[in-house]
Design a protein around this nucleic acid. Structure first.
Lengths: 142, 142
DNA sequence: TTCTAATTAAGAATGATTCCTAATAGGTAG
DNA sequence: CTACCTATTAGGAATCATTCTTAATTAGAA
């Protein structure tokens, strides 16, 4: 996603953030990656380009991009978080075996408005996931 | 939920698990609690009845109940997990301010079958949550 | 009542993430 | 072009819910 990458860089520049080598590397990696990488994945990849980058920098940068809503964070308690440069709402299909996370774009969702009317709860974010086994792992499954 | 409590106890007995004081206390607490308590909440409550119960026992018991699908675990990476003796699929409304978790029973969900037909992904569990502010916290919000 | 495997208590270990501090380097102003 | 200021980075320590380990205890069968 070259567009995505440029969009992120543009937005950071607008907001007055410094475009450091570390940030540019990380943005390039994350926007060219469809696998929803973890912080550790990103660190390993970034070190191939710049061995001196630290783990703190990766986390700091991710929290910045997240705060600016330029990436989406998928949180797990029992495994590392994963990051996605696609920020539109969608359903994630998460494979228990290989850990792969697929996107499913066209799922029917209750809108924030519907939730509010029904319950009075004012929602601003969704988490909608299915857990199971992906096509490939399904065969291998006992 | 007296029914719920009895159901859990019955099921454990059937499976040959020992009905220890610690387990009975925890089952009583969790099935009488609508607030989706954390392991820590349960430990604190259980210690009011039996000060010598240990944190390991709480975790061990929760993992047993979860394994037997008698409770549901809601996982967060940045805050303690929460537990629910209502195991039917439903949407959770999670308040960012007070941390309260409300249930929403009647939401339209993509069935496991539909997912499978669409994508080949074989799902067996759902996580569907809305994040925002509950009725009470909405007023207080900035 | 005895026996034994399951359960418990206590505390150490884990590991992703956050926090802390001093060193470094964008990028603006002069 | 240069110097400076502040944001950013590197490195490592701290955090903390959860898991693991081990030895002692106990529910429930015989």
């Amino acid at each position: 996603m070259k567009d995505n990458k440029d969009f992120i860089i543009e937005r950071l520049k607008e907001k007055g953030y410094k475009l450091t080598r570390q940030r540019l590397d990380l943005i390039d990696i994350i926007s060219g990656n469809k696998t929803h990488p973890s912080a550790r994945d990103l660190l390993i990849e970034a070190r191939k380009r710049n061995p001196s980058i630290s783990s703190s920098t990766v986390y700091y940068t991710l929290s910045l991009l997240k705060h600016e809503e330029l990436i989406k964070e998928i949180e797990f308690y029992d495994k590392p978080n994963r990051y996605d440069s696609v920020t539109a709402q969608h359903v994630n299909l998460i494979c228990r075996k290989c850990g792969r996370i697929e996107d499913l774009e066209d799922a029917p969702l209750l809108s924030f408005n519907e939730i509010s009317k029904k319950t009075g709860f004012e929602a601003d974010d969704i988490r909608y996931e299915y857990y199971g086994y992906c096509k490939e792992c399904k065969k291998a499954k006992k």
